[in-house]
Design a protein around this nucleic acid. Sequence first.
DNA 1: ACCTGAACACCGTTCAAGT
DNA 2: ACCTGAACACCGTTCAAGT
Lengths: 235, 235
Amino acid sequence: MTGQETSAERPTRNRRGRPSSTGLNQQVILDAALAIVEQDGPHSLTLRRLGTDLGVNHTAVLRHFSDKDEILRGLAEQLVNRALEGFEPAANWRATLTAMARRIRAACVAHPGVAVLVATRVSRREGEFRGAEAVVAALREAGFEDRDAARYYRALADTALAAGAYEAAFANLDPASLKGDREAWRREYLLASPAAYPNLAAVAPFLADIDEEEIFETTLGLILDAVELRSRRNG
Amino acid sequence: MTGQETSAERPTRNRRGRPSSTGLNQQVILDAALAIVEQDGPHSLTLRRLGTDLGVNHTAVLRHFSDKDEILRGLAEQLVNRALEGFEPAANWRATLTAMARRIRAACVAHPGVAVLVATRVSRREGEFRGAEAVVAALREAGFEDRDAARYYRALADTALAAGAYEAAFANLDPASLKGDREAWRREYLLASPAAYPNLAAVAPFLADIDEEEIFETTLGLILDAVELRSRRNG
DNA sequence: ACCTGAACACCGTTCAAGT
DNA sequence: ACCTGAACACCGTTCAAGT
């Protein structure tokens, strides 16, 4: 409990128990990587940039991670931990599921640079187990048998992760072309030929007003409505 | 109607009406790009590889596309057209929505290399308008007012695209590490401490049996169940 | 045990020069 | 009008050499 009673390898010290000459270790590198992605976007995360920011040769980080991919997996773990920080099951199962889905998406939207790099490689670590346990517990509480609980867990988790990754990918397009796309999108749908696309013309004014959060909340609400409906049929 | 009555620029000929010396044009380049991605994955799509396959200098393609990004946008258009090829509205609105969502996802899964490159930059062209018109028409047929039709259209389209892009991203991980991940995933969930994660332990045997298609169909079924429920409340 | 520095095999893009 | 070839400013990774 003193915090330094073991000689097991710790990221902040090398195996001799002496800080390395440069102070380099996995956590320091991940912090620097995170800062780079947050400030300048995922395309700025290069080993050379990392070396510059850390004041070391760009190959020095390869003494702490076997390759760049291992750094990305490290960032993935940080993202999961951040998403689940302080999570507690809510008063009822639907609120628990809603909260979890929102946390996953929110973490991706808050750190789009990291999310787009790692959404498909969230490796199975403790943080993820904790989240999965809470979701499955809520679904079993809702009265589903184990096979359905497994299916709905994966449907919810994948939807939240896919939505988060998708939004993150948009956020990472360079701002100029993103803004151009959005404007064009607005205009083109509003100007689409009413003769060729009568239904589109009717709803076009509303399409422009819908933001990503409303889309996510709509999808989540639909899914949970149906889950609730099916749980009542069971019970 | 003869197929060559205009002097407007066509991809297969240069402005003098004479084939270019190398036979290079946008369609030839896009076909080659598609072949590269299908055969060797998205990371193999480089200008140099494109030059080699086309038998020209690697900078020659920049005479037909302003940069690599424009090539990707060209591929995006091909993907949309492929997804909607021969689409016709079905007998009832729910069948139409189901078919459209499946087509979007299937196109991503069938061409994961392209999908992962372009899922976020499906630029607003004719193919997309046709698909959107069919979806909105189905939702209005279901009795929704325009604002709700717009919301549900975006919820469905984004879910299918996000799911397709997400699955495509997995398909593009190199096969070795993907297989390793899947195995680990199976094992780790089955071995997760039943004391710490009792609910997870109960459903673990089922988790391994669920494939991506079942997850997608489950999600789609849930969403459409809820849409149907809400349409009945309206009507 | 850890870091450096050079080298290697790649990228996308620009631009003067050819035809 | 289109293509070539050299050049530029980048990548990630390897490896012998230092300390």
